[in-house]
Write a protein that binds this DNA or RNA. Structure first.
Lengths: 212, 212
DNA sequence: AATAACTTTCACAACACTGTGCAAGTTATT
DNA sequence: AATAACTTGCACAGTGTTGTGAAAGTTATT
C-alpha cells in the first residue's frame, strides 16, 4: 500500500519510446506530411501497432507534435523584448527562423494546415506581440500606416512564412534564410531595401549566430 | 462514306456537359479542394459516372481545370508591356489579382500543390517576364540589389501569393486586394511604403477598375 | 423514325490507410 | 524470479474514395 492506486510506475523505456515516436514523426512528416503511420513507426524502430499504445490516433500524435513545437517557438519568442518596435519585429523574425528552420515543412503546415487552430492557440502570445509591435511602430512613424494593423500583422506573418516556404522547397542555407526573413519582414512593414539592410547591419543582435 | 471514319459528329450537349463539369469543379473545388467527384457531379447536374465519360480520372479533370486557368492567366498577363520595370511588375500583379481573385483557393493550390509543375509550365512566360522585369529594375537601380534575381523572383511571387492566401482565408474585398497585391509586390522588390503608395497613386493604369 | 451518342443507375473490385482485438513475446522493475 | 508494463504480429473490420462494367434509359442529329 503505497501512495498511488497503480501497483507499479510506468516503465522508463515507455516514455523513451514515446519520445522516439515524436522524434521520428518530426523527421518523417517534415519530409512528407501525410506519410502513413507505418513510416513513422519504422523510423522510430517500433511497430505501427505500438504507436497506438502511446497516442489514441494519428490526429492525436500530430496535434501533440505540433503543439509541442509551437510551445517551444512561443517560449523562445516570448523573451523578446526591445523598446524599439522595428527591432522587436526583426528579433522575432530572426528567432522564429532560428527555431523553425530545421522543420520548415512541418512549420508551414502547422500554421497553414488543418492544425492551424491548435497552433494558433499556442502562438497567441507571439501573434499579439507582433500586433503590438506593429501598432507601436505605427504610432512612432517607423511602420507603414496605409494598411490596417490586423491585416498588416497577418501579412507580416505571411511574409515570414513566404521565406519559410521558399526554404521548404529549395535548400536555402540557414544563414541566408536568417537575413532574408528579417529583410522581408521589414519590407512588409514598409521599409525600403537599403533602409532594411542598414537596419540589420547596424544592430549586432540581428547578426547571424551559428547554432549552439 | 463521308469525310471522317466516325459515322456521326459528337453531340452538342456533350461538350456543354463537359464545360458544366469544369465550371462546377471550379466552384466546388474552390470551396474544398479535395471534394469528392460526387460533389462536383452533383453541382454540375450530372452523375458521378458521367464524369468518367469526359475525363479519364480525377487527376485529369484537375489538370485540365488548372491548366485552362493558368492559360487564361498567362494570356492575360502576356499582354503586359511597359518600358518601366516597376510599372511592369505592378501591372502584372494587378492583372494577376484581377484574373484569379474569384478562384483564390484554387489559385493558391494550383501554384503550391501537386499540380504546381503543370501550372508552372503554363506560367513559364509569366515567370520569365517577372524575372526579366526584376533584372531590368536591378540594372536601372529601381529594384533592390541585395537579393539574387532568381530568389527575388520567387519571393515576389510569394509576396503576391501571400496576399492571395490572406484573401482565400478572409473575404478581402476585391478592390482592397488589388491595391494590396501591388503594394506588397513593390515592397518585396525593395520600395518603402510611401514610395510604393505614391507610385500607385501617380499611375492611372494601376487604379482599380471594376469588373467588365 | 432510326440511330448513334450520351447519361444513368447499380453493382462491384481495388486501394490505402486507420483503428482494434488478442495471443504470444520481451523487458524493466521490484 | 515474479510480475506488471510494454511490444509485436497478425488478422480483420471499417471508411471513403476512385475507377469500371454492363444494361437500360434518354436525347440530339440525320
Amino acid at each position: 500500500m503505497s501512495t498511488t492506486p497503480s501497483a507499479r510506475a510506468p516503465r522508463r523505456d515507455a516514455t523513451e519510446n514515446r519520445e522516439a515516436i515524436l522524434a521520428a514523426a518530426k523527421i518523417v512528416l517534415n519530409r512528407d506530411p501525410k506519410a502513413p503511420l507505418e513510416a513513422i513507426a519504422a523510423a522510430s524502430g517500433l511497430s505501427r501497432r505500438s504507436i497506438y499504445a502511446h497516442f489514441a490516433n494519428r490526429d492525436d500524435l500530430l496535434r501533440e507534435l505540433v503543439s509541442l513545437g509551437a510551445l517551444r517557438v512561443a517560449s523562445a519568442l516570448d523573451t523578446v523584448t526591445h523598446p524599439d518596435p522595428l527591432t522587436r519585429l526583426a528579433l522575432i523574425a530572426s528567432r522564429l527562423w532560428h527555431e523553425v528552420e530545421s522543420v520548415r515543412v512541418m512549420a508551414v503546415l502547422a500554421v497553414r494546415g488543418p492544425l492551424a487552430s491548435d497552433t494558433g492557440t499556442a502562438l497567441r502570445s507571439v501573434r499579439s506581440s507582433v500586433r503590438e509591435a506593429i501598432s507601436d511602430g505605427r504610432a512612432d512613424g517607423s511602420i507603414r500606416q496605409d494598411v490596417p494593423v490586423d491585416l498588416l500583422a497577418r501579412l507580416v506573418e505571411g511574409a515570414a512564412l513566404g521565406v519559410l516556404e521558399e526554404a521548404a522547397r529549395t535548400p536555402l542555407p540557414a544563414e541566408e534564410g536568417h537575413r532574408l526573413v528579417i529583410l522581408m519582414t521589414l519590407g512588409a512593414v514598409g521599409l525600403g531595401w537599403r533602409e532594411a539592410g542598414n537596419f540589420i547591419d547596424e544592430r549586432p543582435d540581428l547578426q547571424w549566430k551559428d547554432a549552439d
